[in-house]
């Protein structure tokens, strides 16, 4: 048995020796939204860290943008987020009359979904405007408002989901084959019992 050459030959340090490098801080956090179909809503996908917004967008495309078919990706720096529950506060308020993106979390535990836009002077006013005019915002558990010009979004012709066969990285790329192979070994009732523990939601 030989290990992959790189993994076999990496230079080793004495595990008892202190780390050669000094501690460093983390990169800036960005929240990522993905749009799953053209003109559809932007859905919260997760967070990532990046040197700047441009890199954040490139990195988001190749992580969250590749989990499922996806038409656009948007990133927002955490400091550009104002949250109604006080979790995030906007670091630099934009000039009055800015347009704001509004994302809401309907119930605790739900993901944030971008529901609309408002124009307002300052985050508190934007929050009020959202409650007044954005569908579902008045009853939402938490509201996020974001100065619209701070969000960075892929261009309409940017390629996110790949054009080559991607079924190798999706559960559904295996399902039919796997089931067919199982039936060579197991009867239907044993298989049904086994499948009861399958995940119901998947990419």
């Amino acid at each position: 048995m030989t290990m992959s050459r790189i993994r076999d030959h990496f230079p080793r340090t004495d595990p008892a020796a202190p780390l050669a490098s000094a501690p460093m801080g983390d990169l800036d956090p960005y929240v990522v939204f993905t749009q799953l179909r053209a003109n559809g809503p932007f859905l919260y996908a997760g967070w990532l860290e990046a040197p700047d917004a441009e890199m954040a967008l490139l990195l988001a495309r190749d992580h969250y943008g590749r989990d499922q078919v996806c038409t656009a990706v948007r990133v927002i720096h955490r400091a550009d987020l104002e949250s109604s529950d006080g979790l995030y506060t906007l670091a630099m308020p934009p000039p009055d009359g800015t347009e704001w993106l509004v994302a809401t979390q309907k119930r605790p535990g739900d993901i944030f979904i971008e529901m609309g836009r408002v124009r307002a002077a300052g985050p508190a006013a934007a929050m009020d405007a959202a409650r007044a005019s954005v569908p579902g915002a008045a009853t939402a558990h938490v509201i996020w408002v974001i100065p619209a010009d701070r969000a960075v979004t892929t261009a309409p012709d940017d390629l996110i989901w790949r054009t080559t066969d991607q079924t190798y990285r999706l559960a559904r790329g295996y399902r039919r084959d796997v089931r067919e192979k199982w039936t060579r070994f197991r009867d239907e009732s044993a298989l049904a019992e086994y499948e009861r523990d399958d995940l119901t939601e998947e990419f």
Binding site: D67, D177, V178, K181, L199, E201, E202, F203
Partner: peptide
């Protein structure tokens, strides 16, 4: 929840390899 959605592929691919 998001992680589990990806795990489904890992498990199917594992089943497929074992079955093969």
């Amino acid at each position: 929840k998001r992680i589990n959605m990806e795990e489904a592929f890992h498990f199917r691919s594992g089943e497929d390899m074992v079955l093969t």
